[in-house]
Amino acid sequence: MNGKVLLVEDDDSVREALVSIIEEHGLNVQAYSSAAQFLESFKPSAKSEVIVLDMKMPAMTGLELQSKLAEMQAHIPIIFISGQSHKEEIIQGLKHGASDFLLKPFKFEDLLFSIDKCLKLDLDYKQIKNKHDLLTPREKEVFEELVNGQLLKAIAIKWDVSESVVKLHKSNIMQKLQIETLQDLTRISIALKSHQ
Rank of each mutant, 00 (worst) to 15 (best):
91 I>T: 04
20 S>I: 03
82 S>D: 02
1 M>Q: 11
72 M>K: 10
31 A>T: 03
110 D>P: 14
41 S>V: 02
35 A>E: 06
28 N>Q: 13
25 H>F: 15
89 E>A: 12
26 G>E: 13
31 A>Y: 09
100 D>K: 15
85 S>F: 10
194 S>D: 13
134 L>G: 01
79 I>Y: 06
130 N>H: 15
90 I>Q: 06
134 L>A: 05
13 S>R: 13
173 I>D: 00
155 I>W: 02
115 I>Q: 14
191 A>H: 00
139 E>M: 11
51 I>D: 00
96 H>R: 15
105 P>M: 14
90 I>G: 03
103 L>M: 07
168 L>N: 08
90 I>A: 07
80 F>L: 10
137 P>W: 05
143 F>G: 04
20 S>G: 03
62 G>R: 12
5 V>H: 08
83 G>F: 05
103 L>I: 04
170 K>S: 15
2 N>V: 10
3 G>P: 04
29 V>F: 07
121 L>Y: 13
43 K>P: 11
194 S>K: 10
196 Q>T: 02
30 Q>C: 15
54 D>T: 03
167 K>C: 04
134 L>Q: 04
14 V>P: 01
75 H>E: 13
165 V>H: 12
27 L>P: 01
186 T>N: 10
128 I>P: 00
94 L>Y: 02
179 I>D: 01
31 A>K: 06
169 H>G: 01
